[in-house]
């Protein structure tokens, strides 16, 4: 109570000052005057939430007033992302954006588009990993793809939901090589992995962390990852690119602000995000959680978002997901 009250007083003081002084720069100079709210569009305990909490924790040293994590769940991220988009562009309500912000708009489900967000920094990225049971007949990615070519629609691939990134990863692969898979959506990655373990489906395309337990126990095998380079955790698994399929697709998570946020505020946040992401403690926490550290500065990140937005649009239109 004390806190809000004090911040209210500061706000009143700020309003008073704004009435006299030219507004823009005065506001940015004092930024941040109060704690920054970080909107997480997914439930507590999930991968996105863990990244957000690890970031907020590590940012304490670099952002005087600190960051508070607020989960706004629902609609596969749509509710939280809508709120970030609609937030007052003053830097006090920022968001942890995920790859969904470049996907949901094409499905005609939301009122925002990827252009409504300004990327500040990428924190984490996970490629898609095509995984089969250890006793599956396919030892290599090549054998698997050959089988898929010979038996269109026969291989049942589990994913974490229709229109989710892992579904699109499978569709992108099918699209690229002219294959056809039987996509089976589950409520998240874990049920899909369970179904694979029970032998109800032939393969899953999820992030490597989600199958690492079974892979280490020798029950499953990752045939390939859709990443730029091999993963630190699985150095023996080839990338798709190595095997002759030029495909890199996966999820990413980063800090975003609404489009019209003042440049000075964005600059401050960019510096904070860079220093926080480079903290050893932050990197260690992510590693412990089986999450891949993948810091990328705002401008480069923006290019990636823009490129993937276009890719997803084309892909989703082709497979009939776009509306």
């Amino acid at each position: 109570m004390e806190l809000t009250h004090r911040s209210k007083l500061k706000l009143l003081a700020g309003l008073g000052a704004a009435a006299i002084l030219p507004a823009g720069p005065a506001l940015a100079q004092g930024y941040p005057r109060r704690p920054v709210e970080l909107i997480v569009p997914f439930a507590p305990g999930g991968g996105t939430d863990l990244v957000a909490r690890a970031f907020a924790d590590a940012a304490k040293a670099h952002l005087e007033r600190g960051i508070g994590v607020v989960n706004r769940t629902g609609g596969g991220g749509a509710v939280g992302l809508s709120e970030i988009m609609a937030a007052r562009p003053d830097g006090y309500k920022i968001g942890l954006g995920t790859v969904e912000l470049a996907m949901l708009p094409h499905m005609g489900l939301v009122r925002f588009s990827a252009d409504d967000f300004l990327p500040v920094a990428r924190l984490n990225a996970e490629p898609s990993a095509v995984t089969v049971k250890a006793d599956a007949p396919w030892k290599t990615l090549g054998e698997y793809l050959e089988h898929a070519k010979a038996n269109p629609g026969k291989i049942r691939v589990g994913n974490s939901g229709t229109g989710a990134i892992w579904h699109l990863a499978t569709e992108a692969l099918a699209d690229k090589l002219g294959l056809r898979f039987n996509n089976i959506p589950y409520e998240g990655a874990a049920p899909a992995v369970t179904a694979l373990l029970g032998g109800h489906i032939e393969a899953v395309a999820v992030s490597p962390a989600e199958v690492s337990a079974q892979v280490q126990a020798g029950q499953m095998r990752i045939l390939g990852v859709m990443a730029e380079q091999r993963l630190e955790a699985f150095p023996d698994v080839p990338t798709f690119r190595e095997s002759g399929t030029d495909l890199a697709i996966g999820t990413w998570r980063g800090i975003f602000v609404p489009k019209r946020t003042p440049a000075e505020v964005v600059e401050t946040l960019r510096q904070v995000a860079r220093r926080t992401a480079e903290e050893q403690a932050f990197r260690d926490t992510l590693k412990k959680l089986n999450l891949t550290w993948a810091y990328l500065d705002g401008p480069q990140f923006a290019e990636q978002v823009k490129a993937e937005d276009a890719t997803f649009k084309a892909l989703m239109t082709r497979i009939g997901l776009a509306r």
């Binding site: 769940t73 629902g74 609609g75 596969g76 749509a78 509710v79 809508s82 489900l109 939301v110």
Partner: peptide, 8 residues
Amino acid sequence: YTELFTVP
């Protein structure tokens, strides 16, 4: 309503 995408 995006809030209704999953039943609360």
